[in-house]
Design a protein around this nucleic acid. Structure first.
Lengths: 372, 372
DNA sequence: AGTTCTGATGTAATCGTTTACATGGTGGCA
DNA sequence: TGCCACCATGTAAACGATTACATCAGAACT
């Protein structure tokens, strides 16, 4: 293209002018070599203060920004992180993403999002990205990525880039996991319902096979046992965390002759869908039937009635996952497993069975486990 | 073909093995030059069928994936698109993102999301990305990016990469816009309320200065006028599309001595927050006061009562924006402005003032404007 | 038959960094 | 004083693709 001289297109003006400022331009202006400029940025301590100052000044003057493609080509690093999640339109994830992005941004990383939408074709998307080296690492918000395609066998090891599992632990994968104690939280909620006087507590589950689901279900059983209540399979309703599945469960319940007095829904979405159906059918919440959720999404507080639920520190979860991944990427030691605290949020959707009285408490911690 | 030791690190198996397969490896295996391999991928018609076949076979055999950094460095293209949005945790955006991502993926582009979160620091984020050439183009979901920092003056032109404005048109910017007809939709809703018998219709606004807000407000005025109703500034409530601002507006309303009989909220979030507050205060919706929303987010259908609102084709909006941007990126002509249809969704939150009777209709189109 | 054109292919320059290696100057230590 | 270690810096070789230009064979035309 322009085969003019190497350097005769200096514009002097600071603002990002026409075409990219190259490291050479900076070097020339600061009267050092390109190597020194590069070092002044990457490893400032290996450059004399004077040179560093001149370089910095030249950079400020020219508005130089390193070309990421060139940098990436040479150093084999992309400064990009892939975030894989099962469903972007699930409100639960948005604040987590915010948390992730914050930390990544601070560390100079960009974020690429891949919304699997439950399709295998999209997993190919993920594979393509990692294989092509478009990202340095990935945060996985879905627990079954590899299990599906290659049945365990330690596939993650083959990916070749650092991975972190967020929320859903990936069984059999030896990667750091950031999560809450789902089992303890579900236990806590179940006992809360029991202590309100409920004896027939239904459980609206997540998708079968889901790791979260398994944990929460165990917690439900724990809670039942702790309260001295029998487990009744008829009280386990199938769900998949979506509003629709909550609606469906509600229809099921409405049609029954004998109903549970409380329903523990393993997502707020389902709880809201469920309440909606109950209400439409003329049942009162919590007078006729209590409903509890999980996640504490924004809408939980303004549902009608306001939803009693488990609060997850979503932003913190995201931040933590990003922090751990960054540690990994930069070769620092990182914790193998982090569990963040949840909180039992008591609102208006749970009451005693015969409408005796509402619980007054406001919010209690469940349990805190620090990084191991 | 011949499996003699072409290059000494051939693994034979197709699976992505240890370290990257380079174009050279493919070239050697297919017995052509690297240029031919490159051409076979980029411009197949310029390569003989035989050579192409050999190249393709070699690619399949080696599992070759072009190194994006190298490609990007040479061709000055990143195959990445930046999506800038004001608030990721706003549920309204998630499905739009899904739509965008779908189209981008199909075309081989990746998506980077930048959540401004209303902070100028984040705008720097945006600037950095574009300036550094990390993306080929951007989709803007917020209408005020440049106006804030550089007050009009055609700043977009300086960015130097193709841009598309989605939902919020960016005034004074000469870039393609994909949106709905906010004014017509607001008009439609206002008239719907009026035709239900309401005479005092309040308007819960979006953030002041917001482009969407301006349009919708005009539509509200249009509707009022069309229905022969006077405009009363006291019935305009300040809001910012969030649940909280809906709650606040509700408190305002509850405190008043004379209240409107209907409230048109310019977002579903606000409508839900508002209804919540009214209900808590003992007011009945829609018996005592009707409430309408805008957007038709997932929760609108399961709100209590189910929310009458304006449906936006969110996924399609996203797809369209991505499609237009791709056209732009690939040098194809693209429409300057696209407006998609909205739909008036009638549910249970609107009734006639004195509780006369509910409207029976189910759903009506407002208006359709095809690409210009 | 000679000339020109066309289409397929190869050669090698290029994109803008990072970084291994080389160089020269300086100070510490024997 | 000589030697070594070390620091700051420069030189130039990668990184892995794309693509301008050169080459060459055959077809088509005069």
């Amino acid at each position: 293209m322009d085969e003019s001289g190497v350097s005769d297109r200096q514009e002097e003006d600071g603002a990002a002018s026409h075409r990219a400022v190259r490291i050479q331009d900076v070097a020339k202006l600061a009267d050092v070599s390109t190597a020194t400029v590069s070092r002044a940025l990457a490893t400032p301590e290996r450059v004399s203060p004077e040179a560093r100052a001149r370089v910095l000044e030249a950079i400020a003057k020219t508005g130089y920004v390193p070309n990421p493609a060139a940098r990436s080509l040479r150093s084999q690093k992309t400064y990009m992180v892939l975030v894989v999640l099962p469903d972007l339109s699930n409100t639960f994830f948005s604040k987590i993403l915010r948390g992730i992005e914050e930390r990544l941004f601070e560390a100079g990383y960009g974020m690429i999002i891949s919304d699997l939408d439950g399709s295998p074709e999209k997993e190919a998307h993920f594979a393509a990205f990692t294989a092509a080296g478009r990202v340095d690492g990935a945060i996985l918000l879905n627990g079954h990525l590899f299990g599906q395609t290659r049945e365990g066998e330690g596939m993650p090891a083959k990916i070749g880039i650092p991975l972190v599992a967020l929320c859903e632990a990936i069984p059999s994968a030896d990667i750091p996991q950031i999560e809450i104690d789902n089992r303890a939280a579900a236990n806590r909620m179940t006992q809360h319902l029991a202590s309100s006087g409920h004896r027939r507590i239904a459980y609206l589950s997540g998708p079968a096979g889901n790791v979260l689901e398994k944990e929460r279900f165990l917690g439900y059983r724990d809670g039942l046992k702790a309260a001295g209540l029998p487990f009744d399979p008829a009280l386990v309703l199938p769900g998949d965390y979506t509003i629709e599945s909550g609606v469906k469960a509600g229809q099921d319940l409405v049609a029954r002759s004998t109903r549970p007095t409380a329903v523990f829904c393993t997502s707020d979405e389902m709880a809201i869908g469920l309440m909606r159906t109950l209400l439409s059918a003329g049942l009162k919440v919590p007078e006729d039937i209590s409903v509890a959720g999980f996640d504490d999404i924004e809408f939980a507080a303004v549902a009608e009635p306001a939803l009693t639920t488990i609060h997850q520190p979503r932003r913190e979860l995201g931040q933590m996952a990003a922090a751990v991944l960054i540690d990994l990427l930069q070769g620092r030691p990182s914790p193998k497993r982090i569990r963040l605290e949840t909180e039992l949020i008591i609102r208006d959707s749970v009451a005693s069975p015969q409408n005796i009285e509402k619980a007054p408490a406001k919010s209690t911690r469940t349990r805190a486990i620090k990084p191991t």
